[in-house]
Structure formats: C-alpha cells, structure tokens
Computed example of a mutant assay.
Amino acid sequence: MKVTVLAGGVGGARFARGVREHARRSGDIERIDVVVNTGDDWWLAGVRIWPDHDSLLYTLAGENDDERGWGRRGESERVAAELQAWGVTPPWFTLGDLDLGTHLARTAWLRAGETPSQVARRLGTRWDLGVTLHPATDDEIDTHVVVEGGDRMHFQEWWTRHRASLPAIRFEHAGIAKASPAPAALAAIGAADVVLVAPSNPVVSIGPILAIPGMRDALRRAPAPVVGVSGIIGGAAVRGMADSCLAAIGVETDAAAVARHYGARSRGGLLDGWLVAEEDAASGPALTADGIPSVAVPLWMRDADTSARLAADALAHASTLRADARRA
C-alpha cells in the first residue's frame, strides 16, 4: 500500500510519525509520502526557513525537542543572541544553532539553483525518516495576515510574536495565483492507495496546500479515498491556536464544522471520510448524511502506540470506504 499524507505543523508531524510506526508494525505499507505545507515559510537573516517541513524532518528523525514542541533537541542559541545584538533578527523569533545549520544548508542549495523539492530530498537523506517529504509547491507562497485595523504582517509575526491574539480578518498567500503544485507532490497524490489529511491546522497548514492552483483538482481526480482526521476534540483545538484561525474564516471550532469546511468529495469538496474523537461521536450521522462518512475513534496521540493506532483507524476507514464504493 502507498499512503500520501497532507500535513503541516506539530500535529501533522506527530501524525506522520504515527503512520510510519503503523507501517513498521504492520508491514502493510510499502511507501509513505508527505505533502508538506509551505505557507509558513519565510526569509529571515538571509536564510530560508521552512517551519512545517522542519517540524516533520526533526520529528521523524527523532531530533525534535519534544518539550518545546519545535526545533532540535540539545539546542543552543549563541548565534541567535549575536544576530539579535546586531539587530538582524527580532527578539520574538529565535534560531537555534543546530536549526540554523539546516537553514544555511537549505539556503546554499537554493541559491545554487536547486528547487525546494530537490532540497527537501537532500535534507531527507541525512536520517532514516521512513517517509519522503515533498513541499506542496516549489514556488514561494508566504502567508501574510491582515488584522483588525488593516495592518498586514507575515504569518510568523502574527503567530510567534502575537500568539494569534490580534484578530485576523483574512490570510493572504503572496504569489499563490501564479504558483503550481510541485511535480513530486502531484505524483505522490496520483500514485497513492490512500490519501490522509493530517490533524493539522485546517486554515494555515492544510489551507495553503489546497489553495495552490491545481491541487484541489488533483485531489478530486485521485483514485484513492481521501480521509481526514480532526484536529478539534470536544470543541477545542488540540494545538496551534486553530480557533483563532478558524474564527477569521467564519468556521466554528468544531470537528463537524471543519469537515464541512473541507467538504465532501462527492459534492465538489475534498473528503471521502472523516475521523472524529469519541467525544464528538454524536456528529457522525449528520456528517454521513452530508456525504462525509465519519467514525469516532481515540484521537489523542500521546505516544507511539496511540499514534500508530490512530493511523491504523484512518487506514481502516479508507478501506471500508473503498469496499463500499466497489459494491455501489
């Protein structure tokens, strides 16, 4: 079986790790591809930073700082202190020394003419990740946020400096109208037996992937079932201030509301199926009636066992959907 995951951020990284753990335990998966959000990316101090990609890279490599939830474990910040002393970087965004090494290597390869997809492949060879990471696009589509009062700032400033506390009016992706999906990302979607939408932020992690011209069409044409996993449990975001992002686009912080935001693929949307938490089981029948067959399972990814079980549940739901489609 070939599995492709759409992901970004900490929740996406943990879910991808769970899919890999299930693959290692079951032996049922021959390949895992992850299409990674690039909307969080930005330039800082002359280097190109890929926050979502690096969360996935470090988590899958076993190098992530699990206490902070981001960055490298065993990190130091001597260079960051110097950069801030020179006024090159703001005090609210700190680059760890080990992390900076990744950014410098990436930027060197980009400036030498390699595409982001080529760079991601090079970065992925250092550790045995067990998956292949693909930027959703090779074009730059940095996210900016327009807040109340009309001020516009890079997503990283809104997210990291202000902790999403400034009410957002809208999110804009610079240059996205001229962007296109990365060829490797499209190939991974087209070759998949199952496409999984990770429990990542639906607005700023999955949203930019879907907003790339041609990406939704590729997912609608995909022969594989598309199954999403809710990142909302019991009316609360598990991580990442998703409630502030959902409010900006007029979507309730609710598992069923997010599913309807993605929409049923049978009705022009994205999803063939959806996983909700046991706390949200009551929403299942109505979602199924709306064309998004839903099942309630434990969604908390507390360790390798619970993460692998969630991946198994998502794949089982996809298998059921596939069987139902054949019988129809």
Rank of each mutant, 00 (worst) to 15 (best):
W109Y: 14
T38Q: 02
V195H: 01
S307A: 15
W158Q: 05
S283D: 13
A281L: 04
G12V: 06
P225H: 00
R126P: 09
D66F: 14
A304L: 05
D139E: 09
G231Y: 01
A182S: 15
T306Q: 06
E252L: 09
T160I: 15
S230V: 03
A185F: 00
A277M: 03
E172Q: 11
A289S: 08
T107N: 12
P51S: 07
H154D: 15
T4V: 07
R73L: 11
D41I: 04
V226W: 00
T4G: 05
L100V: 12
F171P: 15
A168E: 00
E67C: 09
A80M: 07
D305F: 03
H173G: 14
L186N: 08
S76N: 11
S55D: 12
A308Q: 06
D40H: 01
F155A: 02
L133H: 02
A314Q: 03
R68N: 06
V251D: 11
T306G: 15
S294T: 14
R24S: 04
V258Y: 05
H317K: 07
F155E: 01
H261V: 02
A328F: 09
G234E: 10
A168N: 05
S200V: 07
R260C: 02
A257N: 01
L210C: 00
R170F: 02
E252G: 13
D41M: 07
R161H: 10
L60T: 00
P293E: 07
A164R: 15
S200P: 01
W109H: 10
P213G: 09
F155H: 06
G96H: 03
G39D: 12
V195D: 04
G130P: 03
E114D: 10
R260L: 07
Q156S: 01
D65G: 12
R267N: 04
C245F: 09
D99P: 00
A264N: 08
A222Q: 04
D142M: 06
A264V: 09
F93V: 03
L95H: 10
L219E: 00
A198R: 04
H103N: 13
D28A: 15
A318C: 08
T94H: 12
P225Y: 00
Q118C: 09
I209R: 11
Q118S: 06
Q84K: 07
Y58D: 13
D54E: 11
A281T: 05
I29G: 09
A81L: 10
G250Y: 00
G69M: 13
V145M: 09
V79A: 14
D313N: 15
K2N: 13
T59W: 00
G268Q: 04
D313I: 08
L98W: 14
A16W: 02
A187W: 02
Q84V: 12
Y58M: 15
